[in-house]
Structure formats: C-alpha cells, structure tokens
Amino acid sequence: MKAAVKQWVGFVGGLAFALVANTAALADVVPVVSVKSTIAHLSKKELTDIFLGRTAQLSGGEPVVPIDQDEGVAARDEFYTTFIGKTAAQLRAHWSKIIFTGRGKPPLAVPSGAEARKVVAANPHAIAYIDRSQLDASVKAVRVD
C-alpha cells in the first residue's frame, strides 16, 4: 500500500513539475515570425530583450522589429506573463521610464492576432505573438528555450 502511494505521489509530483516547467510550451500564445525569417528559435533572454527594447538586432546583427497587440487584448497579457514575466502594470512602468526619458518607444501595437500575423508575414524582420490557433502557412512559430 505504501509503495503504491509513493508511486502515485511521484507520478503526480512529476506531472506537476512537468506542467510548471513547460508552461511556456503549453501556453496558447506563441511567438511567430515570417516563413522568410532566419529565426528558428530564441532564448527567453533574447525574446525578453527584443520586446523590452533592450536590443534592436539579433546576435548575427540582423535587425529585429517586435510587434505588440493592443493593451487590453488577452493575448498580450498572456505573452508578457508567460514569456517575459511582467504584468501589464509592470510593463507600463518599464515603458514610461523609457518614453519619458526620450530613450525610445514601445513596439508598434496592432489590434488583433490576425493583424499581427499579417504584419509579420509581410516583414521578414518582424516578430509578434499570436494564438496557436491562428498559425497558418504565412508564419512559423518560434521555439523559445
């Protein structure tokens, strides 16, 4: 009986760990680039630097342009909490320091995932995030480590 309980606890614990560790992989929102883009995968650190305005180019020197969805859209909040680790309020405080010290501006924002997909498909340097269900042949998902 004790052995069975131990096995069961181990299974549930392992499942819970796997779920937590792979939250990003299970999220509905996924970063996307054009099928013509050179990006196949990015580290979480690289993705964060791009969307928080800390870098405007990839490691090879190619330019990268992040595209947001409008404030208030669920996909935006999910992207930032899952991949960047910031709430909407923290993100706004981050950008307010940058905007009001003339250091830069936040990414261009579009009203929906469909719009984001259109912008990304047309621009090989752009990167955006859309719902998994919105993936089509014009864009490809970016694997994030």
């Binding site: 706004r92 405080a93 307010s96 320091k97 009001f100 010290t101 003339g102």
Partner: peptide
C-alpha cells in the same frame, strides 16, 4: 536639454507612475 540621470530614478522623477 535632458533631465540628469544622477540617481536610479532621477531622469523619470516626475513620472509618478514609473
């Protein structure tokens, strides 16, 4: 003209939200 960045938050000192 710039605002001086002397302390961690001084160049955005007027932006209470930040």
């Amino acid at each position: 003209r710039i605002a001086l960045p002397t302390f961690m938050y001084s160049d955005s000192v007027n932006v209470g939200y930040s």
